[in-house]
Measured scan of single mutants.
Amino acid sequence: MTYKAILNGKTLKGETTTEAVDAATAEKVFKQYANDNGVDGEWTYDDATKTFTVTE
C-alpha cells in the first residue's frame, strides 16, 4: 500500500511517499524522515487518503 506524507516544516516543505504494509509502519518511516530533515511538529493522519501531515 502506498502512503503519503505532507511536510509543512519551517525549513522543509514538500511531499514524499512510501510503500508499507500498514499505517503504523509508514508512520515510523515518515517520522524518521522528518527527524532526519529537522522537522518536528504536530502529526495527523487521514485514513481515507492514506496521508500523514506534519506541521511545525
Rank of each mutant, 00 (worst) to 15 (best):
1 M>P: 08
1 M>Y: 15
1 M>W: 13
2 T>D: 04
2 T>V: 13
3 Y>T: 01
3 Y>R: 00
4 K>S: 06
5 A>G: 06
5 A>C: 15
6 I>K: 05
6 I>M: 05
6 I>E: 05
7 L>N: 02
7 L>R: 00
8 N>E: 07
9 G>S: 09
9 G>I: 07
9 G>K: 03
9 G>T: 15
10 K>G: 07
11 T>S: 11
11 T>K: 11
11 T>C: 14
12 L>I: 14
12 L>Y: 15
13 K>F: 10
13 K>V: 09
14 G>S: 11
14 G>T: 14
15 E>V: 13
15 E>H: 10
15 E>K: 06
16 T>N: 04
17 T>M: 09
17 T>V: 10
17 T>S: 12
18 T>D: 02
18 T>K: 04
19 E>T: 14
19 E>S: 11
19 E>A: 08
19 E>C: 14
20 A>D: 03
20 A>T: 05
20 A>S: 07
21 V>M: 13
21 V>E: 12
22 D>T: 05
22 D>Y: 02
23 A>G: 04
23 A>L: 09
23 A>H: 08
24 A>Y: 09
24 A>S: 11
24 A>T: 10
25 T>I: 08
25 T>H: 13
25 T>R: 06
25 T>Y: 07
25 T>S: 14
26 A>H: 00
26 A>G: 02
26 A>W: 00
26 A>C: 03
27 E>R: 06
28 K>P: 03
29 V>A: 08
29 V>P: 01
29 V>Y: 15
30 F>Q: 00
30 F>R: 00
30 F>K: 00
31 K>W: 07
31 K>S: 04
32 Q>E: 09
33 Y>C: 09
33 Y>M: 07
33 Y>T: 03
34 A>L: 07
34 A>K: 00
34 A>S: 04
36 D>W: 07
36 D>P: 00
38 G>L: 06
38 G>T: 03
38 G>M: 07
39 V>E: 03
39 V>W: 15
40 D>H: 14
40 D>N: 13
40 D>Q: 13
40 D>L: 11
40 D>M: 13
41 G>K: 02
42 E>Y: 13
42 E>V: 14
42 E>W: 11
43 W>K: 01
43 W>L: 03
43 W>Q: 00
44 T>D: 09
44 T>L: 07
44 T>C: 09
45 Y>C: 02
45 Y>A: 01
45 Y>N: 00
45 Y>S: 02
45 Y>F: 06
45 Y>R: 00
45 Y>P: 00
46 D>W: 03
47 D>Q: 09
47 D>A: 13
48 A>K: 13
48 A>G: 08
48 A>S: 12
49 T>D: 05
49 T>W: 04
49 T>V: 05
50 K>I: 02
50 K>E: 02
50 K>F: 10
50 K>M: 09
52 F>K: 00
52 F>A: 01
53 T>N: 06
53 T>C: 09
53 T>L: 07
54 V>C: 13
54 V>K: 00
55 T>A: 05
56 E>V: 07
